[in-house]
Amino acid sequence: MIPLPPTAPPGVACADALACDVACFPTPDGYVDLVRAWREDGFELCADLCGVDYLGHPGRDLPEGVVATRFEVVVNLLSLERRQRVRVRVQAGDREPRVASLFGVYPGTEAMEREAFDLVGILFDGHPDLTRILMPEDWEGHPLRKDYAVGRVPVQFKEAPGPR
């Protein structure tokens, strides 16, 4: 586990994570500040950002003091120089998940945040263009939420001709 950057905001919990140097859990208010602190600390590339809907999950391991909410935003940062990976997991809320946008820190999160908005329905404050990206514009709902069905259509073989 590597130490938090010196400019990190208060109230960040840390934990060990698999295949990653540290997983940190900021408060929603300190989220952007923490990511900016990591960036200043040498993590120049934001590898990934995605939203997770934990509805129906039996309970996940969180460090003390972190209140689990239904939605979580997971950011994976990468330092090319130090060859380290850091994961930032922020609790985004239950009803109307909402976090601040990372666009000002890493412009490359633009498409990823749009995807998280489109598929999981997380709102990003300060995002320049928060529109759907993968689904059609008039689509209803956010498909990767747990209360959104897979949309399976039963397959019928009635019409198929019999064996030749």
């Binding site: 689904m135 498909p143 959104y148 069905a149 897979v150 949309g151 399976r152 259509v153 397959v155």
Partner: peptide, 10 residues
């Protein structure tokens, strides 16, 4: 032809 293995919303 039939959606194949992707029998889903998309």
């Amino acid at each position: 032809s039939s959606g194949g293995m992707f029998n889903n919303y998309a």
